[in-house]
């Protein structure tokens, strides 16, 4: 194989080998310390950079109030709930407990927040809606402020009432929420739920609906509002 290269090429290689790249002074010891440190504390190693980056991205998203609310809505409702809410004619109110509703559990009022009426029998396990709202707090230092959590809890109760086909209760919850958090961070979500509840009651919502759709065209509840109020059918 050596015959593949002429003497000049061999000479260049020998010279190049004499001048191989060398690690800067002190790097060997620094790397050794860093490796031993990383092995002792695996979570801080560069090998977990990707995981750390993913965690950091997750934390940033969870820190956004609208993202937390979206999670709250999705976990609280589920697709089946959405379909029921958007059905054209509300079925007769049932007193039997809805098995699907039990998966989200009853909504407890936040500390210091009065509840207008009990919405569902107490479930033995922790309600998943509360977990959804609380989990970002555990993962990020930029957790929702207490007021925001209270707003979220109130909206969750309104959602639960809508899911039970009880728009009157939902409206009462939302009006109470409005009284307390007139300029709250979840105002758009509250207005969306109010519109859904009113449409379920068959009330006229035209001015408020137009205003809502104009002010929050990309809101997380727009599609639900449009379905509940049959906006597309009217067009």
């Amino acid at each position: 194989m050596s015959s593949d290269m002429n003497p000049a090429a061999r000479r260049v290689l020998e010279r190049a080998k004499a001048a191989q790249p060398r690690a800067p002074e002190g790097m060997r010891e620094r790397v050794r310390s860093a490796v031993l440190e990383a092995v002792a504390h695996p979570n801080s190693s560069p090998g977990s950079e990707a995981g750390a980056a993913r965690s950091s991205v997750t934390a940033r998203w969870l820190a956004k109030p609208w993202f937390s609310v979206t999670l709250l809505m999705l976990s609280g409702l589920g697709l089946a709930g959405v379909m029921r809410v958007t059905s054209s004619a509300p079925p007769p109110k049932s007193t039997a407990p809805d098995p699907e509703r039990l998966t989200t559990g009853p909504e407890q009022p936040p500390p210091g927040v009065p509840s207008s009426e009990p919405l569902a029998p107490a479930a033995p396990s922790q309600p998943s809606l509360q977990l959804s709202a609380a989990s970002p707090e555990r993962e990020t230092s930029a957790a929702p402020a207490p007021d925001l959590r209270a707003e979220m809890a109130w909206l969750a109760r309104a959602e639960a009432a809508l899911r039970k086909r009880d728009p009157s209760t939902a409206l009462r919850e939302l009006e109470a929420q409005r009284a307390r958090f007139e300029q709250g961070q979840l105002r758009a979500e509250r207005e969306g739920l109010e519109l859904i509840a009113r449409c379920m009651l068959g009330r006229s919502v035209s001015p408020a609906l137009a205003s809502y759709l104009a002010s929050a065209p990309d809101g997380v509840l727009v599609a639900r509002v449009q379905r509940a109020c049959r906006v597309t059918e009217r067009r």
């Binding site: 290689l13 010279r15 190049a16 004499a18 001048a19 191989q20 790249p21």
Partner: peptide
């Protein structure tokens, strides 16, 4: 990060080595 002396004490050899590297 070719070493300054490029593996030689003679500066001419070092220069040749660095160039080859």
């Amino acid at each position: 990060d070719v070493p300054a002396l490029a593996g030689a004490t003679d500066p001419f050899v070092a220069a040749a080595n660095a160039q080859a590297a």
